[in-house]
């Protein structure tokens, strides 16, 4: 047996057993969920035949579709704002020396570690007592509190990712741009930002996922007119299971797998470009 084989633990049976059990544990429930979304039966988990009924019903469930629309709009807005604020924060903390640098860096890490429930109640109190959001605003504006809350906890994640990428930036290229007559903003936009591109893609994907996934903070911030997808699914699960949840979950699962595959592909392409 050669040395690499000797260390290839994934080929030894005890570890194969663990891998197989963990794989089953992680994926069996999701597979059952997908299978049940095609099951022609309302209550039991016994297979009664193939149907697309639940998917057809999804099209008629306007509340669920509206919730999905809200979630996507919130995720898009929160991603844009988080990308902007996270990148600004990362560049500011990387570029400048100022009194309180350590304090601000540590403070920006707080939203990552503070328990969601604490942020949730903070947002509830804030929008109930300190900054009441006007009722009856037109659609995207009515989502304001949720977008604000999401950006507050997501932009630090983006800042961490962008900051890591800045470490590999060669400052001499920026100095060269300045020597050739570019102003500080031109140099930033034309030299620093292109270098950040992979981290901006990664940050956007993470921001979108975090926003779309968030239940607890949204649960405390959302009003009766601003139900998001997770909040809607929560109430459906809480008050009686319907097979429509299986169907909509399957749609979202397929979307997730497709997006993940796309992200991996983009990363692989970026990797090829970096190593000619």
């Amino acid at each position: 047996m050669s040395a690499p084989d000797l260390l290839d633990y994934s080929r030894r049976w005890p570890l194969r057993l663990v891998l197989a059990s963990v794989g089953l544990f992680l994926y069996l429930p999701l597979l059952v969920l997908v299978a049940m979304s095609f099951n022609d039966s309302r209550q039991t988990t016994v297979w009664r035949g193939f149907t697309l009924d639940w998917y057809a019903r999804l099209g008629g469930n306007l509340e669920l579709l509206a919730a999905l629309g809200n979630s996507l709009a919130i995720a898009a807005l929160a991603t844009l704002l988080s990308l902007l604020l996270g990148t600004l924060a990362a560049i500011a903390l990387w570029r400048f020396r100022f009194p309180g640098l350590g304090l601000v860096s540590a403070a920006f890490a707080l939203p990552i570690v503070v328990p969601e429930i604490c942020m949730g109640v903070a947002m509830l109190i804030f929008f109930a007592r300190i900054l009441p959001w006007p009722a009856g605003l037109p659609w995207p504006l009515s989502l304001g509190p949720i977008v604000i809350a999401h950006v507050a906890f997501i932009f630090p994640f983006v800042a961490v990712i962008v900051r890591a990428r800045l470490e590999s930036f060669n400052r001499e290229t920026e100095e060269a741009a300045r020597d050739l007559g570019a102003g500080p903003w031109r140099a930033l936009l034309d030299v620093v930002v292109p270098h950040l591109k992979p981290s901006l893609v990664a940050g956007a994907l993470l921001a979108f996922t975090l926003s779309l996934d968030d239940f607890v903070i949204t649960f405390f911030t959302a009003g009766p007119d601003t139900v998001t997808f997770p909040v809607k699914v929560y109430s459906m699960v809480r008050f009686g299971v319907t097979p429509e949840v299986n169907a909509v979950s399957t749609v979202l699962l397929v979307l997730t797998v497709a997006l993940t595959a796309l992200a991996l592909r983009v990363q692989a392409l970026a990797g090829e470009k970096l190593a000619p």
Binding site: P29, L30, L33, P230, V233, V237, T256, V257, L259
Partner: peptide, 18 residues
């Protein structure tokens, strides 16, 4: 990683189904 990118509520619901 894939479950991490999947919605938390969907995962919890899937486990409940089983």
């Amino acid at each position: 990683m894939l479950p991490f990118w999947t919605n938390l509520l969907i995962r919890t619901y899937a486990l409940m189904t089983v």
